[in-house]
């Protein structure tokens, strides 16, 4: 098990800046995130949308903000554990032990929860049979293409994931692409390619329609889709791939015994500590009187939390407030000569 000074849950802007604030104080952190890349909502929800309210940055996109934060924390060589969801938090004397869904364990005196609105998970088909067939013939991600060879595949969705996989898997399988409206929001050039394949009879496109039912005997046999005009159609199907986008779920955080207010965690605004000593919350997930869900508020919150983290991680040292402009120690930690 790895012992560090702080475990940061969430690799969004606030979690990343937390690495910086801990790092300049000489504290080592790890960051854990359920997504496959850093950036949180900035990357998952609005990578191309400009943000106009980061102080001294008149305009930048979610992606640029993330890239710059990653650049800013480079000197601290912090490990990011991606594709890992924190499942369990338990106490071990003065420390906390965190366990992920992949059974990785970390131990630290401090946890900073910078989890936004929770972890991103795929939106699923709300039919009982779909639940029973999940990971057998109903999938929400493609991990191993080989599994999808020479199959009759029904792909749902109108975004890039749906279009990209329709194109890719059409090379060796029969694809039906199904979307609830006529317009696809994915890249138009991919759509053009797919339209060509439709003409060639390799892909069939069904819109505007939604799934009505699944027919199975042990294995999936077919699906029935319903068009907006009420007509239904049965489509022989071995595999369903659903790309309905991601939803945010608070997940296991709700079960850690923290004082909650709706979907947010109550904190003391002096140090952003929760009702549990050594567990902090910053960014969109925390609540206190007057809370604003802005990135800049999250930066402030995690900076204050990092001071308290220092006191817990170095109980025998005195905390000294220092400026990056004048502190030799901080400049050394940043690798500046």
């Amino acid at each position: 098990m790895k012992k560090i000074d702080a475990i940061i849950i969430g690799a969004g802007p606030v979690g990343l800046f937390g690495v910086h604030q801990l790092g300049i104080k000489g504290l080592k952190a790890v960051v854990i995130d359920n997504l496959d890349k850093a950036g949180g909502q900035c990357i998952e929800l609005y990578p191309d949308k400009p943000i106009y309210d980061i102080p001294a940055v008149p305009e930048c996109t979610g992606e640029q903000l993330t890239t710059r934060l990653l650049e800013q924390i480079k000197p601290f060589k912090t490990q990011l554990f991606l594709n890992e969801r924190v499942n369990e938090v338990r106490k071990d004397n003065e420390n906390w032990i965190v366990t992920t869904n992949n059974k990785k364990e970390f131990i630290a005196p401090n946890i900073i929860i910078a989890g936004g609105v929770g972890s991103f998970e795929p939106r699923k088909i709300h039919l009982k049979q779909a639940e029973q067939l999940e990971e057998k013939s109903v999938f929400y991600a493609v991990r191993d293409k080989e599994k999808f060879k020479n199959k009759k595949i029904s792909i749902f969705g109108g975004g890039d994931s749906a279009l990209d996989w329709a194109l890719e898997l059409s090379k060796f399988s029969k694809i039906t692409l199904i979307h609830r409206r006529n317009e696809f929001r994915g890249a138009q050039h991919t759509l053009m390619e797919i339209k060509k394949l439709e003409k060639a009879g390799k892909v069939s496109i069904k819109t505007p329609c939604q799934i009505e039912s699944l027919e199975s005997e042990n294995d999936l046999k077919s699906i029935t889709i319903k068009f907006d005009d009420g007509k239904t159609e049965k489509i022989p199907t071995d595999v369903i791939l659903g790309f309905f986008g991601l939803i945010m779920k608070l997940g296991p955080i709700a079960e850690w015994g923290l004082n909650m207010n709706k979907k947010t965690i109550e904190v003391n605004p002096e140090n952003f500590e929760t009702n549990k000593k050594g567990i902090f919350a910053a960014g969109d997930i925390c609540s206190y009187p007057g809370k604003l869900k802005l990135i800049l508020s999250g930066f402030h919150e995690v900076a204050l939390a990092s001071v308290e983290c220092f006191k817990r991680a170095r109980p025998n040292e005195k905390y000294r407030f220092e400026f990056t402009t004048s502190s030799k120690t901080i400049q050394d930690r940043l690798g500046k000569k």
Partner: peptide, 16 residues
């Protein structure tokens, strides 16, 4: 707007 309609794709049981 288009952005709203795109987002509705991700809603639970969207309708017309």
């Amino acid at each position: 707007e288009d952005a709203e309609v795109d987002m509705i794709d991700m809603a639970f049981e969207p309708k017309k």
